[in-house]
Write a protein that binds this DNA or RNA. Structure first.
Lengths: 183, 183
DNA sequence: TACTTTCGTTAAATATGTTTAACAATTGTT
DNA sequence: AACAATTGTTAAACATATTTAACGAAAGTA
């Protein structure tokens, strides 16, 4: 069970491969066709690298190619990038609208993790955002106090995420227990 | 600027290396010492793999070794795993207490992304949790309606995170704009 | 038609992380 | 002391992702 950390490597497609698929998706919308060289320019990598990666994606059934070597997304590829793009959108909105990260950072952070999180996480995050950003009076009140609230600490403890009078300094060993009494 | 996706590879230490550091941290607490074979057993990988990875971590100044090849974390290593562990804790609490993910999933998801997110993201997430889980009356009210709220959709649209009457279906192109009017 | 450019692929190289096998050195046991 | 087990390292191998260089084929141009 301590092999939890290895799950990172069990991700079906790498970050790189996912972006090859997304490049195909984007370029199809922009130009209506995609060749290897288009992907290479779009991602700013070499044609050879694209050639090799796409071959793998074809073998795995994510991409198809016509007689002129113009690419299409096969159904699994289409499906996969839809889920990734949806997750990215949700994560980005969360980072920007809930955490108030600057948009460029929200986007970069979403890009790094979009393909790593499970669908369930994406769904639950959307569910949360659905309420948080709603017209519901209580949600509105919460957003309003959230605007002014800024949790901060000032110690010199090891913890660098916040520094002193820290939330975790005062709840140091409670990570394994529910924080709120759930009665 | 479309090289945003390459930031994934600019992460200073790999997932694997970070876990080697965390293994040292854990094992020092458990046994008071750490040898290569201890790390290998703890992470369930071969001694050779550990030997190679640790050599790199020594060269980069994250790990030191005494005359008997017992390891210690150097200051940068200590500092790094503190930030990673803190981020993991925050993320895990968020997933479990805010999104209501089952704990095993919250933990696995946190493990996958803990080393990828910036410190700023960790801080902002902690700030959010600090309010959300507080005794503040409005926060309590919000938590209460949150308990019952479950956003759900039922379409057959491409989006697989939710399906129909979808939050994003109704706000399809607004990802690039603020969702809430910020007046 | 002949020359040039573009394009896809392959080969060889680099870099990371991993494995197994072999080896040397140390430690434990009898 | 002699044999056995444990430990760390290195070498060779594999897998992934990337690069540059080279090559061949197709397309565009003169």
């Amino acid at each position: 069970m301590k092999e939890l950390w290895k799950k990172f490597d069990e991700i079906e497609l790498t970050h790189s491969s996912v972006h090859h698929l997304m490049a195909i998706f984007d370029l199809l919308q922009i130009h209506g066709y995609v060749r290897a060289v288009d992907i290479a320019n779009y991602l700013n990598i070499s044609r050879s690298s694209v050639s090799i990666t796409i071959r793998k994606l074809k073998n795995r059934g994510y991409v198809t190619e016509d007689e002129n070597k113009f690419y299409r997304l096969a159904a699994p590829g289409e499906q996969l990038i839809q889920t990734v793009l949806t997750k990215r959108g949700i994560i980005r909105i969360f980072f920007r609208e809930v955490l108030n990260l600057p948009d460029h950072l929200a986007e970069a952070e979403a890009c790094k993790i979009e393909h790593l999180l499970e669908e369930e996480t994406g769904q639950k995050l959307m569910s949360f955002i659905g309420l948080y950003l709603s017209e519901n009076k209580i949600a509105e009140d919460f957003r309003n106090i959230r605007t002014d609230f800024n949790y901060h600490c000032d110690t010199t403890e090891a913890c660098t995420n916040c520094e002193a009078d820290c939330y975790f300094a005062s709840h140091p060993f409670e990570i394994d227990k529910p924080l709120r009494r759930t009665e």
